[in-house]
Design a protein around this nucleic acid. Structure first.
Length: 483
RNA sequence: GACCCCAUCGUCUAGUGGCCUAGGACGACGCCCUUUCACGGCGUAAACACGGGUUCGACUCCCGUUGGGGUCGCCA
């Protein structure tokens, strides 16, 4: 499909962090902009003074930067455009598309409660639309506060959604929404329409929880005499319990995944395939590949459950695609934070770090796993896995370890080859199977029951560290046997 | 409750009337590889919600039912 350049936007409100739902909406918008050579814009919807928190803006932008979602123009802050919106509310009122509503919030709430009780729709009953000119003038002059509502014309409202096709709703089911509050400030729907129009947004792609708003906003475009943009309503991302992801329900901040060792390209790739797919059996793509192949036609209409296990599977694939050096840059601070080593030590032994990552790489799902399963490459305190120790540490093992240590002492540097030869020799002279030597040795030098190939570990650790740990294990076994 | 959206394995999905005895991926299970754990390879279990139509023929089209989700604020 060929499509001209689009102007799209993501419009988060700083009342919380960026969760995967918003992140995925941002990704699709960004992808469409990049695919068509258009612009991706960011607007901060911070008109709610009570709930917006300025300090939440940076974390949201950080999460976007982490995902590689760069924007093309200055960020638009609605809070700085408040004055701009009021004029348009007035314009709608003067043009006869709106009317003053003197109902108080308390009254409105009461009639909603009543409507619910009577099991009906809770739409505004338009009582203020029936007010006479005189009555309106009288109340206005008396200083009675009023909100401005737009009057929804009779008939069906229709639009063609990029995801779901023809969508329509009868005017009876669209409320005469308030566009300006009684304190004069504009409400969300008006602000959005004014901004999208003035920012030149051509395609509005957002969650399908906005469908109701879209019908309302279409009437605002009409009342203002503006061209209506294309709309696309994405299916929602659901939690495993099938509720839509939300801050309320404690869903994770996208930044948190970064701290938990998820690679940004993995998150990007996984999210992109939730609700969209390339119509092939391939699932792993780079960001650039996705820009190439992305087309909104392949957007799904059904909601999708977010599965962290599958995210991890994507993460593993992307970890395998990164160079050891790249991974080292990301893993180094994690090792330091875990108290396993220091920044300085790693900097002077960068090659070693890369080699360690090389042997650990394929048994890791998240970046944090490197520290969790490979700590012994940096620090070893003589702690042995309990189960493995009771199984592998016995008198016979102590003797074999001693024989191995003796053999290694006669060696120069430990290499993959002579490490293997050493183990073979010890097994042979001891008249036991290799496994009898290998398992205690692994436990002795790593403390772990599982991990990379033993010779890899030995060669990496080096002669003196291996000897130290061997002797330490022998002591450990002997003192334990005596006790 | 009203309105709207949606409906293929547990999960993400392919499928646009015959290529379907429904394909792939994650997860699960088993086998092989192997010093362990992974990786890799091979394989198994696992789905078209239901009922009516339309048609020579429906997973695919239409209607209804059921189920799930969303929205119903002078919040965004």
């Amino acid at each position: 499909m060929t499509q001209g350049p689009v102007r799209v936007r993501i419009a988060p409100s700083p009342s919380g962090y960026l969760h995967v739902g918003t992140a995925r909406t941002a990704i699709f918008n960004w992808l469409l902009a990049r695919h068509t050579g258009g612009q991706f814009l960011v607007r901060i919807e911070d008109t709610d003074r009570e709930r917006s928190k300025p300090e939440l803006i940076e974390p949201i932008l950080d999460a976007m930067r982490w995902l590689g979602l760069d924007w093309d123009e200055d960020i638009v802050y609605q809070s700085r455009r408040l004055d701009r919106y009021n004029a348009f509310a007035e314009q709608i009122l003067k043009a006869g598309h709106g009317y003053r509503c003197f109902c108080t919030a308390v009254e409105l709430e009461a009639s909603r409660v009543q409507a619910r009780a009577e099991k009906g729709a809770t739409k505004y009953d338009r009582r203020c639309l029936a007010l006479s000119e005189d009555e309106i003038r009288r109340r206005t002059e008396a200083g009675q506060p009023y909100a401005i509502r737009i009057r929804i014309p009779d008939g069906d409202t229709k639009f063609t959604d990029m995801v779901s096709g023809e969508l329509s709703r009868h005017s009876d089911d669209i409320e005469d929404l308030i566009i300006a509050r009684s304190d004069g400030t504009a409400t969300y729907n008006l602000a959005v329409v004014v901004d999208d129009h003035e920012m030149g947004v051509t395609h509005v792609i957002r969650g399908n929880d906005h469908i109701t708003n879209t019908f309302k906003q279409i009437h605002l475009y009409h009342a203002l005499g503006w061209e209506v943009p294309q709309f696309g309503h994405l299916p929602l991302i659901l939690r495993p319990d099938k509720k839509k992801v939300s801050k309320r329900l404690g869903d994770k901040d996208v930044n948190q995944y970064s701290h938990e060792g998820i690679l940004p390209e993995a998150m990007f790739n996984y999210l992109c395939l939730l609700g969209w797919n390339p119509k092939t059996d391939r699932e792993i793509y780079t960001r650039d590949e996705l820009i190439q192949i992305f087309t909104p036609e392949y957007l799904n209409a059904a909601n999708a459950v977010f599965d962290e296990e599958k995210l991890e599977a994507f993460n593993r694939e992307h970890i395998m695609r990164r160079s050891n050096h790249d991974l080292a840059v990301l893993v180094a601070p994690m090792l330091v934070e875990a108290g396993l080593t220091t920044k300085y030590w790693l900097e002077t032994r960068w090659k070693y770090l890369c080699d360690v990552i090389g042997v650990l790489k394929e048994r890791v799902r998240r970046l944090n796993d490197f520290a969790a399963i490979g700590g012994y490459f940096f620090t070893f305190e003589g702690k042995y896995d309990d189960e493995a120790a009771s199984k592998n540490f016995n008198d016979e093992a102590a003797e074999l370890l001693a024989a191995l240590a003796a053999h290694i002492e006669g060696l120069g540097d430990l290499t993959l080859e002579n490490a293997e030869q050493a183990v073979n020799a010890v097994a042979e002279t001891g008249g036991v199977k290799k496994a009898k030597v290998i398992h205690p040795t692994r436990l002795a030098i790593s403390g772990m029951p599982a991990g990379p190939g033993l010779y890899d570990i030995m060669a990496l650790l080096g002669r003196s560290a291996v000897l130290d740990r061997l002797r330490r294990a022998i002591d450990y076994i002997r003192t334990k046997q005596r006790a």
